[in-house]
Amino acid sequence: MKEDYGEVLANLAKTGRLRELNPLTNRAGCWVKRDGRTLLNLSSNDYLGLAGNKDFHARFYNGLKGADLLDRYGLGSASSRLLSGDCEPLHELENALKVAYGFPSALFYNSGYHANIGILPALFDKRDIIISDKLNHASIHDGMRLSLAAHKRYRHLDYDHLESILVQNRPKYERAVIVSESVFSMDGDVADLQELVRLKERYNCLLYIDEAHALGVSGPKGLGEAEAQLVLEKIDILVGPFGKACASIGSFVLCTDEIRSFLVNHCRSMIFTTALPPIIASWNLFVFKSILEMADKRQHLKSLIENLRHELVANGLHTYGSTNIVPVVIGGNQLAVDAAGMMQDEGFLVLPVRPPTVPEGTARFRLSLTADMSWSDLAPLASKIARCLNSLATG
Rank of each mutant, 00 (worst) to 15 (best):
K2M: 12
E3Q: 12
G6E: 14
N11S: 15
L21Q: 15
L21T: 15
N22Y: 15
R27N: 04
K33M: 15
G36D: 06
L39W: 02
L42I: 06
L42P: 00
L42F: 03
K65G: 15
D71C: 13
G74F: 02
R81M: 10
L82P: 10
G85A: 11
L90K: 05
L93F: 07
N95A: 14
Y101C: 06
Y101F: 15
A106M: 02
A106Q: 00
Y113K: 12
H114T: 07
N116A: 12
G118D: 02
I119D: 02
K126A: 13
I129P: 00
I130S: 00
N136H: 09
N136A: 12
D142V: 08
S147R: 06
A150S: 14
L157S: 05
Y159F: 13
H161A: 10
E163N: 06
I165D: 01
N169D: 10
R175A: 08
V177C: 03
V179N: 01
V183H: 05
D187F: 08
A191L: 03
A191C: 07
D192K: 03
L193M: 08
E201S: 09
L206W: 11
I209A: 03
I209W: 00
A214Q: 03
G222W: 00
G224R: 01
A228I: 06
L232W: 04
I237N: 01
L238R: 04
V239F: 05
P241K: 01
G243W: 02
K244Y: 13
K244W: 07
S248W: 01
V253A: 04
S261M: 15
N265E: 15
R268S: 14
R268F: 11
T274E: 12
I279D: 05
N284K: 05
N284P: 11
M294Q: 08
H300T: 05
K302F: 12
K302C: 11
S303H: 12
I305Q: 04
R309S: 01
H310K: 13
L312I: 02
L312G: 02
V313K: 13
A314T: 09
H318Q: 13
Y320N: 14
G321I: 07
S322Q: 10
T323N: 04
N324Q: 13
P327M: 09
I330A: 02
Q334K: 15
L335F: 07
A336E: 04
G341W: 14
L351M: 10
L351H: 04
G361D: 14
R364S: 01
S368R: 09
S368E: 08
W375P: 00
P380R: 05
A382P: 02
R387C: 08
